[in-house]
């Protein structure tokens, strides 16, 4: 069976871990929750490439590796290139009949942080999506360059304090809006593009399985709460992610073949974004009277985006 049973958590928990502990990610980091879930969601052999970033530097500290599968550390920008190169060679060797075990199912996965996906590896990712390789790219979106000290990236949302977009008496942090990477990837005509969050484990595992099973380039953006740079207590990782999905800061949805949009999670009670912002240290300056207008703008953007997603789901275009 290629796919792990994810009907309920008890079934899912019989999966045998292939991501080992004693990696050096911060306590409470959501990166490893996401990676573990991907590797537990399938029984197939995995070939994984990682962009430089927190995940890569923390899981392969010489002389240790936390990966029980084939894994390569590659430059900041080219996990997509490495994964697609491996996939192309796998196909070629399969055709020539030189594989030692040709029937074994193999899936190709690339992991990147938001810095290497939205900024530095964007061109490489776009190229890999266009070439149409059979692989899955997963972006672990923690909204800054957490590995190097929390610099702004193009995934950092408006109003967030980062080490290179600091908040103070004249600035409220980052002024530019976050890039809509999901829409950009969907515009490549990719067969499966989604935005998922680890607190909704079932939709995330289902999304991973769908992406792995789908032939062609798939892209998944996952919300990865960063306890160090978002400035919250490590134990609250899931709580913060709950707030993110319930305030619709991170709507969970998928886009199939670049057109068909499905919303995968509709919060019963949509909470005001203020609650999400108030729970994190990186937004605490927004609650000063002179920056209150930024919160209103963020809320307005979220409402507009949610309206757009709902209408697009209804229209099926």
């Amino acid at each position: 069976m290629a796919i792990t049973n994810i009907k309920n958590l008890k079934e899912f928990s019989t999966a045998n871990e292939r991501f080992e502990g004693a990696h050096l990610l911060c306590p409470g980091c959501a990166h490893s929750m996401i990676v573990r879930e991907l590797m537990n969601a399938t029984d197939d052999n995995l070939v994984i490439a990682s962009n430089t970033g927190c995940l890569e530097v923390s899981t392969a500290v010489y002389p240790y590796t936390s990966w029980d599968t084939s894994w390569i550390h590659i430059g900041f920008e080219n996990a997509a290139t490495a994964a697609t190169g491996a996939e192309a060679m796998f196909k070629a060797r399969k055709r020539k009949g030189t594989l030692p075990n040709p029937d074994a199912p193999v899936k190709f996965v690339a992991f990147g942080g938001d810095g290497s996906t939205f900024d530095i590896g964007f061109q490489w990712l776009s190229g890999a999506m266009e070439r149409g390789h059979d692989f899955t790219y997963i972006c672990l979106d923690n909204e800054n360059y957490a590995n190097t000290g929390g610099q702004r990236s193009s995934a950092t949302p408006v109003g967030a304090h980062t080490s290179t977009a600091q908040a103070g008496s004249v600035s409220y942090g980052k002024k530019q809006k976050k890039k809509d990477i999901v829409a950009i990837m969907a515009a490549h005509g990719a067969p499966y593009v989604a935005q998922l969050a680890p607190n909704k484990w079932k939709s995330m595992a289902k999304g991973f399985q769908k992406a792995l099973e789908t032939e062609g380039p798939c892209f998944i953006n996952t919300v990865s709460a960063c306890t160090t740079e978002w400035k919250f207590d490590p134990k609250d990782t899931i709580h913060i992610t709950d707030l993110a999905t319930d305030s619709l800061m991170f709507p969970i949805y998928e886009i199939i073949n670049g057109t068909e949009l499905n919303i995968l999670y509709r919060p019963k009670n949509i909470i005001p974004v203020e609650e999400y912002l108030a729970a994190q240290g990186r937004y605490k300056h927004l609650f000063k009277p002179q920056y209150r207008h930024v919160i209103d703008e963020i809320q307005k953007d979220i409402d507009a985006k949610w309206e757009y997603l709902q209408r697009r789901e209804e229209a099926k275009v």
Binding site: L9, K10, E11, F12, S13, T14, E17, F19, E20, G21, A22, H23, L25, P27, G28, C29, A30, H31, S32, M33, R36, E37, P198, W201, T237, I238
Partner: peptide, 18 residues
Amino acid sequence: CQNCWVWCPDTSIISRDK
């Protein structure tokens, strides 16, 4: 319920046979 298993970031919850 296995909530701790699915969300443990460090593969430190040991679950066997559900």
